[in-house]
Every structure is written in structure tokens, then in C-alpha cells.
Amino acid sequence: MSTETAILTEAITTSKPPADHARKVSFRIWRGDKEAGAFVEYTVNVTEGMVLLDCVHRIQAEQASDLACRWNCKAGKCGSCSAEINGKPSLMCMTRMDTLPPDKVVTVEPMRSFPLIRDLVTDVSWNFRVKKTIKPFKPRKPDNADGSWTMFQQDIDRVQEFRKCIECFLCQDVCHVIRDHHKEDEFIGPRFLMYTAALEMHPLDTEDRVGDLKNRDGIGYCNITKCCTKVCPEHIGITDNAIIPMKERVVDEFYDPITRLFRIFKGKK
């Protein structure tokens, strides 16, 4: 849980309604497509334990069967139901209604950084195109005769942390380089900086992606505001554990005077 949510949760615990007590909650949900749209109000009976996605489903089933919303697992594992809830990028399936301020209208909008398809659904295809440009995993030769490798748990803990990513793209949505400055052509975003870090830190990998990070992927645009880390539903240390170490590798390789000298002598570009 992020600090903000934690504070929010604590603040409203005292005013939590009694168990099994249904209360009416009003929602402002964005309805529309590329051309036009507006917030539409819906009211739903909310009972204990419900998450925001349940409310959206209830609206679909009872009031607006054509309300578009993307979702799959409803357990925080697939990363499909990303949206902006009261302005905060979140997963709808992991947002419990009793963590939102009671007696206030709940605003639900699509992720703002991506082109709108309809209602709460956005076009996230840019992310899939970006991933394809990153050099794939290239392992060293197997260590053992049976084709296996020897790796120790302490050497893979960090990579496993990054591989928890469920590709909800909330980090991409919140990143100001994409959201405000639209640098999609020059910057791959926190998700793919971390994806690159996972490959670079993989004990078996032999590929070199540091040059790409600097020259093509725009790692320099990240000024470490850590918004991505704050919204990550998997609580991955995106900035501290992935992006900063990659920035350090870029610095070591391209800006360290001694390394530069070596490069000149060795004739590397």
C-alpha cells in the first residue's frame, strides 16, 4: 500500500459503516469515445468488502450494459482494470470501497496518458510496440550437461522483484514524461526501463542494452520523481531498484572519464 492510500485508509477507518450495512454510493464515470464524452452519474448499493470493479459490474448489469471496461482476473494479478479513481491511477479490482472517503461521489476515469477507445478503456498498444524494440534475452551457454544453469537465490532476488510486474501500465500512465510531455517517441517509460533492468541484471544474460538506454530509450528524461513507484500495485521499487542502477550503468559506460579513455584506446564506439 502506498503512503497516500495508507493515510487515507487510516483516516476513514473510524467512519467505516457497520458490517453488512448497504450504503448508497454515487459515481461519476467517464462515458464517451475519441470524439466526445462526459461524466455520467450512477448510484449503486455498496455492501461490505466490495471493490470498485464490483460497482462498475453492477452498473453494467443493472443500468448500462454497454459501459466499456477492461478486466480479467479480479484479483490484482493480470493488470487489466487500470483506471484513475478520484484522480489516482489504480487497479479497480484492488480498490476496496471502504478505503475511499464515504459520502463523497467517486470519480472514475480512464487512464489519461493513453488514447481513449471508449468509456474506461484506453488504447495501450504503444506499450506492446515498445517492448518489441528492446533486445531480447540472450543466455550464456548452459552450465551443465543436461542443459541447465546454476543460479543462486540471492543472485535472482532482484530480477524476480521486477518480474512481479503485471503490466497494468499505471506507472506509464502517471509518468509526467509521457503524461504531460508526450515523449512517447523518445522515452520508453518506467515499465520498460524496469523491463530492461530485469534483462540486464539477469545472471544468464549476455546482451548489452546500456547504449540503447542512453541513445534511444530516453533514460535521461527520468528525473526520479518516483510517481511510478508510488502507484505500482505490486510495490516494486521501480525507481530505486531498477531505474537508478540503470542510470548509473549509463554514467559508468558513457560519462566516466577513465572508462571513456579506455574506450578511445580500445576503439569502441
Binding site: S65, C69, R118
Partner: peptide
């Protein structure tokens, strides 16, 4: 029966 149109229509 369904309402709305063919674009991203969960009822359909």
C-alpha cells in the same frame, strides 16, 4: 437484446 452499438459493448 442489447443496447448501444458494436464498439466495446460488454452486453453484446
Amino acid at each position: 437484446g442489447v443496447i448501444g452499438h458494436r464498439e466495446y459493448n460488454p452486453g453484446w
